[in-house]
Simulated assay, not measured.
Amino acid sequence: MMRIIRWILLPFSLLYALIVWLRNRFYDIGILKSQSFPLPIVVIGNLAVGGTGKSPMTEHILRLISPLRNIAVLSRGYGRKTKGFRKVEVSSTAGEVGDEPLQIKRKFPQNTVVVCEDRCIGIEKIRRKHEGILLDDAFQHRKLRPSFSILLFDFASLQHVILPLPTGNFRDCLHESKRADLVVITKCPNKVDGDTRFQLQAKLHKYTQAPIFFSTIAYENPINDRGEQLHLHELQQKGILLITGIANPLPLLSHIEPMASSLKHIAYPDHHAFSASDIEKIKHSYDSIPTDNKLILTTEKDFQRLPEELKIQSPIFYIPIHQSILFNQDFEFENMVKRAFSC
């Protein structure tokens, strides 16, 4: 039924695509102005809605560049309850700064992480103390002219007809790929055959001449807030309640399901703010698992939003993830990113 409704809305998708196209052309010809800055400004973004792995890519780049240069991370802070410019502290809450910036700050406490809806204002406030700034989800923020743009595509999104909102899932036209300096097709299966790789590259090279890389999500051992790890084989003896509030939980579910003796899954929308009734539902679901050898498992991003009282009352572990570049292209990818921050 939902699919039929989305196709009925196709005329609105065409109107939306026209408005987005005109906005981009106004920026291209200078009717609308973009601002540049005298230091490396690297943007990570996507054209589709939903998770393409921007946060894991941000963390991947921080691991590469932080030992070499003093760079800051600037994010909009999606899902926060505050407005304006705000510095992210390890002690901040997801409600104050957003779950993804908080996750990044807690993993990279030595790096400055800030949130601001207006990226140009945010850059102006921090640029004099840093050698470069990495922006999460700012490809469509045309008021800013970055020095380098990294564009992400979810592997699954490229398997279907690409249509704009609301019929499809794309918030910008594929033609805008031309602005990218580097393209990464993320969340690939562990094995991508040569024909599929060639077809996807040919599809995107109609719109961009940027180098195209492929990456997959690598899952790490579950960990709790005390730093205690579980090896994946230990999940085989446990009843698991999986809590997700991410755009696409299916890859994680497919990863966990074969390893769990029993598994319950409660799925919420991306960046979901857990209410008191949500927490009661989680507690009830956990208590109903018919074994004492059980735990709650969640994503690292969701872990930032779960209330402390639940973490105290129940054993909760989260699964860290990281980007892994495929086809032995990690050295080439690393060199491109390093050059982007040395300009």
Rank of each mutant, 00 (worst) to 15 (best):
M1H: 10
M2A: 06
R6G: 03
L10F: 08
L10P: 04
L15M: 13
Y16W: 01
W21Y: 13
L22F: 11
F26Q: 13
L32E: 10
Q35T: 15
F37A: 03
P38D: 10
G51Q: 05
M57F: 13
H60N: 07
L62K: 14
L62V: 03
I65L: 13
S66R: 06
N70Q: 12
N70C: 10
I71Y: 06
S75C: 03
Y78T: 03
R80M: 01
R80K: 05
K83Q: 09
E89L: 11
V90I: 11
S92G: 02
S92W: 11
S92Q: 08
T93A: 12
A94S: 10
G95I: 06
D99T: 06
D99I: 09
E100Y: 12
Q103I: 15
Q103Y: 01
K105Y: 06
P109A: 08
Q110P: 14
C116Q: 10
D118G: 06
C120Y: 09
E124I: 03
K125Q: 12
H130K: 01
G132K: 05
L135K: 12
L135M: 11
D136Q: 06
D137V: 07
Q140G: 13
Q140R: 04
R145W: 02
R145C: 09
P146F: 08
P146R: 10
F148D: 05
S149A: 06
I150Q: 05
F153K: 02
F153P: 00
D154H: 02
D154P: 02
F155N: 12
A156E: 15
Q159L: 13
I162P: 05
I162D: 03
P164R: 04
T167W: 01
G168W: 11
F170I: 00
C173R: 14
E176W: 04
E176F: 10
R179G: 07
A180K: 10
C188F: 02
P189R: 14
P189Q: 08
N190E: 14
V192F: 11
D193E: 09
T196S: 11
F198Y: 14
Q199C: 11
L200G: 06
L200H: 12
Q201H: 12
K203F: 10
H205W: 08
K206E: 11
A210W: 04
S215E: 01
T216K: 13
I217W: 06
E220L: 12
R226W: 07
L230V: 00
L230Q: 00
K238C: 02
G239P: 14
L242A: 02
T244D: 00
I246Q: 13
P249E: 09
P249N: 14
E257R: 15
M259G: 13
S262N: 07
L263S: 01
P269Y: 08
D270V: 01
F274Q: 08
S275T: 12
K281L: 03
K283R: 06
H284I: 06
D292M: 07
K294M: 05
T298D: 05
E300W: 00
E300G: 07
K301F: 07
F303P: 00
R305P: 00
L310K: 03
I312D: 09
I316R: 01
I319W: 00
Q323L: 09
S324N: 12
I325W: 11
E332F: 13
S342K: 02
S342F: 04
